[in-house]
Amino acid sequence: MASATTDQPLRTTPLRVWAGGRLHDDPEQAVVAVTDHGLVVGDGVFEALKVTAAGPFALRRHLERLDRSAASLGLPPADHGVIRDAVAQLLEGQQVELGKIRITYTAGRGPLGSGAAYGPQTLVVALDAAEAPAPSTVVVTAPWTRNEHGALAGVKSTSYAENVRVLAHATERGASEGLMLNTAGHLCEGTGSNVFVVLDGRVVTPPLAAGALAGITRDLVLEWTDVEERDLTLEEALGADEVFLTSSLRDVQPVHRWDDTTFGDHPVTDAVARTFAERSAADLEP
């Protein structure tokens, strides 16, 4: 694809897809086999990261987590060079104020069942527009638990039907996120976010042993601010002074209502959000 020139303004494309080793101007042309194990049984992993006019954020960390998730499913590491080249092709000539890059990596072709895939692995990289997060949000407690001892605990797998169901439950109740407890009754995570609470001025978040995904934004908040990791009961969390969510597209987002509990001012959350905004703007690969 030719680079944009000064007499040809940059164009914004809602959805662009790289698959099968090449860029597809028409996303409908990008296909995978009906026997792909990512489709048949969810045998795959993925990453979703924010992209702005400055470029993709924390791509290295996302690729490293992609490999950790792949290893959990017995898949070989993805080719980071190929993915980076795909990202560059997707972004070439595009004017992206706020977007999302999704990297999907599956076991490839396999049987119509849970037996081992034949391969080779499938790689799809897509660029889409994204909406800025609301200043604050509403969450609900999910009626289902997260199994912190399961084979997919902490894995960003394409087996996402459970999260789809929880998020639908939250949406039906006017919330943007459903928060799950684990089998021990401790707070775990949201469908696509990590959760933090502020207790007497101290920021606390569930440990990864509770079953939560090691979110990239979560990791950076832990590195850049003072956070305690420990188990939290639902009662303790609902009694917090402040609650906030983190994710690659939410960044640091205050919660103003959780079930029937409302939260007012959030000075500690605001301070964490400022630190994250400043540090992330200063370095695209922290």
Rank of each mutant, 00 (worst) to 15 (best):
T5V: 12
D7H: 14
L10K: 15
L10Y: 15
L10R: 15
L15M: 11
R16Q: 08
W18N: 05
R22F: 08
L23R: 10
E28K: 09
T35Q: 15
G38M: 08
L39F: 15
V40T: 10
V40W: 07
G44Q: 06
V45P: 02
E47I: 06
A53E: 15
A54C: 06
G55A: 06
A58C: 13
R60A: 15
R65G: 03
R68Y: 03
A70I: 04
G74V: 09
G74P: 08
L75F: 06
I83E: 00
I83N: 01
A86Y: 00
A88K: 15
Q89N: 05
E92Y: 09
G93R: 08
Q94E: 14
E97R: 12
E97K: 08
E97Y: 04
G99S: 06
G99E: 01
G99K: 04
I101H: 01
Y105H: 11
T106I: 04
A107S: 06
G110F: 02
L112S: 07
L112H: 08
G113R: 07
A116L: 14
Q121V: 05
Q121F: 03
L123M: 07
V124E: 09
V125F: 02
V125Q: 03
A126Y: 00
L127H: 04
D128S: 15
D128I: 05
P133F: 03
A134F: 08
P135T: 11
S136W: 12
S136P: 03
T137W: 00
V140N: 01
P143I: 01
H149G: 08
H149E: 09
G150V: 00
A151N: 09
V155Q: 03
S157K: 02
T158Q: 05
S159R: 00
Y160A: 09
V164N: 09
A170E: 05
E172R: 15
L179S: 00
L179P: 00
L181Q: 07
A184E: 13
G185H: 11
G192N: 10
F196H: 01
V198D: 01
V203F: 02
V204H: 00
T205W: 00
A209F: 08
A209I: 02
I216A: 02
D226F: 04
D226K: 05
V227Q: 07
E229V: 01
L234G: 05
L238V: 09
D241A: 10
E242N: 03
T246H: 06
S248W: 09
L249Y: 05
R250D: 01
Q253N: 14
Q253S: 13
P254S: 12
P254E: 07
P254Q: 09
T261E: 11
T262A: 14
D265G: 12
H266P: 01
H266Q: 15
V268A: 03
V268K: 05
T269P: 08
A271G: 14
V272C: 10
A277M: 06
E278C: 06
R279T: 10
